[in-house]
Design a binder for these strands. Sequence first.
DNA 1: CGGTATCCTTGGAGATACTG
DNA 2: CAGTATCTCCAAGGATACCG
Lengths: 130, 130
Amino acid sequence: MPSAESGCPVDALVSLIMGPWTAYIVWVLLQHDSIRFSELMKDVHGISARMLTVRLRRLEAAGLVRREQHLGIPPHVCYELTARGRELAQVMTPLESLANKWFAEDQAARRAPASGADEVRSTLPRLQGI
Amino acid sequence: MPSAESGCPVDALVSLIMGPWTAYIVWVLLQHDSIRFSELMKDVHGISARMLTVRLRRLEAAGLVRREQHLGIPPHVCYELTARGRELAQVMTPLESLANKWFAEDQAARRAPASGADEVRSTLPRLQGI
DNA sequence: CGGTATCCTTGGAGATACTG
DNA sequence: CAGTATCTCCAAGGATACCG
């Protein structure tokens, strides 16, 4: 029984919306009014075409992203955030601030390892990925 | 290459903090000043002992949870959120509000399926898990 | 260009049994 | 009581090749 079915609304939203790559994709979408698939591939560094498609389809199904097809040769497909997508971005901004704050705190703790707080010491390996 | 290593701070935080069950666990911890392992097992409905341990250890390593052992027979271990854990809760509250808002919107759209907005129509299957 | 289809692999979650 | 240890299994993601 994965957590999304367990009754916590936050968990449900997080599981559906915040899957792998998703936050990254939304973050890139935020910086463009509208962006083509191939541009997304470049900006979301390291993602595979398959994964990008899967996540975009899910975001579309969740009403966060709008897909616009301009057929022709060559085809031209672009993606943009819906109003709901931008709503999500609004709650992600505080999340980003918090991540950056904690990261800064951890960096400081790493430079002054002798200083008191055990609670901070135990958190050293945390946010290296950033 | 999972998204956490891809360079987006939000993704890194989300991946580390918001793994399966985690939001649920934090949510339960928020409602108790301090709570025992066995109580957590009951309140986080459906979780296995192993998974609960794994997630708690990770939360501990991230400095979000404090573990207090009162040895004896029987042993007594309790968990509580640290200051950092409560910080996280503060950014999760808007997230929860948003989840509830979207859920309500979707419910309304489901009751009035003929109404306009295509953007809303496409989102129907979304938050059933809640 | 913007994807699908297919195969393959892996690590993460469940179940079960055991322990200080 | 509060966990570990071990096994197993399978969905989720990567790699690759192909298609409208």
